[in-house]
Design a protein around this nucleic acid. Sequence first.
DNA 1: CTGAAAGCGCTTACAG
DNA 2: CTGAAAGCGCTTACAG
Lengths: 348, 348
Amino acid sequence: MKQDSLPLSIKDIARAAKVSHSTVSRALRDSSLVSPETAERIKRIARESHFRVSAVGRSLATGRTNSIGVVVTTISDPFIAEVVTAVEDTANARRYSVILASSKSDPEREMKVVQSFEERRVDGILVLASRVGSVYMPMLAQMKIPIVLINSQHPGEFIYSVSIDNSAGARAATRFLIQLGHKRIGYVGDRAGTPSSATRLAGYRLALERANIPFLQELTAEGDVHPEGGLRATQRLLSLPDRPTAIFCYNDMTAMGALNAAWQIGLRIPEDISIIGFDDLAIASYTIPPLTTVRQPKHDMGRMATEILLNLLAGSTSETSRSVQGELIVRESTAPPAAHVKALRQLG
Amino acid sequence: MKQDSLPLSIKDIARAAKVSHSTVSRALRDSSLVSPETAERIKRIARESHFRVSAVGRSLATGRTNSIGVVVTTISDPFIAEVVTAVEDTANARRYSVILASSKSDPEREMKVVQSFEERRVDGILVLASRVGSVYMPMLAQMKIPIVLINSQHPGEFIYSVSIDNSAGARAATRFLIQLGHKRIGYVGDRAGTPSSATRLAGYRLALERANIPFLQELTAEGDVHPEGGLRATQRLLSLPDRPTAIFCYNDMTAMGALNAAWQIGLRIPEDISIIGFDDLAIASYTIPPLTTVRQPKHDMGRMATEILLNLLAGSTSETSRSVQGELIVRESTAPPAAHVKALRQLG
DNA sequence: CTGAAAGCGCTTACAG
DNA sequence: CTGAAAGCGCTTACAG
């Protein structure tokens, strides 16, 4: 007698339906090689006994697991969480499961993660905003399954990727501040020196240059991608004798810290200082004041990357890399600088 | 000749090492049944050829997949993301993989999620803050693998769970407001009527009752767990002829909306109105002003639930349900009501 | 349309 | 200490 705790197999169903297990397998996969009556009977029995085909048995036979591995630094980052949501939606809609693993930007963990993905024979891998890279990127590069990167560094070494145009986004944000009349514009980046921070800095510099505003090293500071880093870096900028009238932040979390730093010393936003972020997280609409920012199409990016991966798995040689554009979302954390307003008044 | 794209198997290693595949299997699992020299040689060959044992082959043989399924409503909720982070850390440390699936609180999706977990033969399931429940809870209940719930409704029907003490947390928050001198205290819940919102409401009522403050239906409003719902609900409360001097919010996201609503009509926080949340998300320290809230030990909760599950899988009959306590974190969004301050001044 | 057989990559009791 | 064998739950080419 079969132990109750063991899951049923197609053999059990075959016995009950008085057919071979091959026929059960075919019936459950809606093969046209089974007579409608037999198929119906088998399916009914399977349903009634709450039978579920074993994906592990199937995987061994087919050589595919219908699963993808997703590597993130941490799921606690709202930007990443949003992208993963889209990844999961897209994957599930195509009957793929998502195995999630966070690296914490720890090289050793990243190795383990990738190793466990290999052991599990995931069909493909998605790497999100990897910050370490150097160590395991080569490891990834030599893997034989498809890999798609989202906003990752070292995109050059890989064929497939989806990335935000960091430079254009940063330029748009900075240009907007310049158009408002700002001349002393700060930038708060990421001290870990991620490539995306470097690129946003470059975009910021480019915008200044085009407006003939000198780039001043003293107006840049380094945060850590989180509010705390933004807070501290902004405190430094605000303590400058001649402080900036506007600050472009690496991301919205950094901007939240910046808002807080300004608030702590009694500055009014945006009257005394303008703050602009990057990402457009869900909460960006609810900060005080609501945050002007560069929106990353998080959902689209997750979906596009997953589609590229799944199309690759389906054998289609689809597009390779895609660059998406950010969109400036103007809210209430930005305004012309006070001096500028005064000047305009005098003119009027 | 073997196709290059197919992963190596233990047979390939066996051939290269001139031993049987049984011996390879043993060597790679560090069995004492293999001579040290042979084991070393096998491992070296495996390493040099970048071989990874197939988890699917192993799973079929052992009947275990070393994976757990985690059901969430959405990973975009920061509270859930934090808990999942702890779950994943704990699971990975014990060599389990996490398969993530979000239900979007959509009954149909929840069914599919659970079904796919069954097919994948996950060893156990973790359900986080399920809000639908009614539909698939019975389905879950009849599954034969261990299930542990975190902050889920219908805990009664399951044996294993980890839950925050919603009533005590809500009471602590409300009592704190009362001690500050507030008498007109509002509550913004969740219109979906989740049990946890009902329980927090009950805790709020209990605290009022003990302080002999009448419960007024008009001071309660319903949000949606997100800032937008908190914003709208708070707008309603603030438009009352005799508006509340303090508001206890279902969660921090709701509180963010509440802060924004107060700010929009020019109220000063906490001078004109006190706001208190629940969760203590990472961003709660950086709202303007920083949010007083009831901290849920998110990391501990995720870790505890995962440990219960993994211990169960390891055969130990560990503890069953655990209730954890929230902790009141006082920041700057709460203060005595203006009237109270005035009265105190007159006394002094 | 159906079944018997082989095989996917492992583990492990059994025999030596 | 080692190997041959059986078996885990499927899929699918082959034969009928």
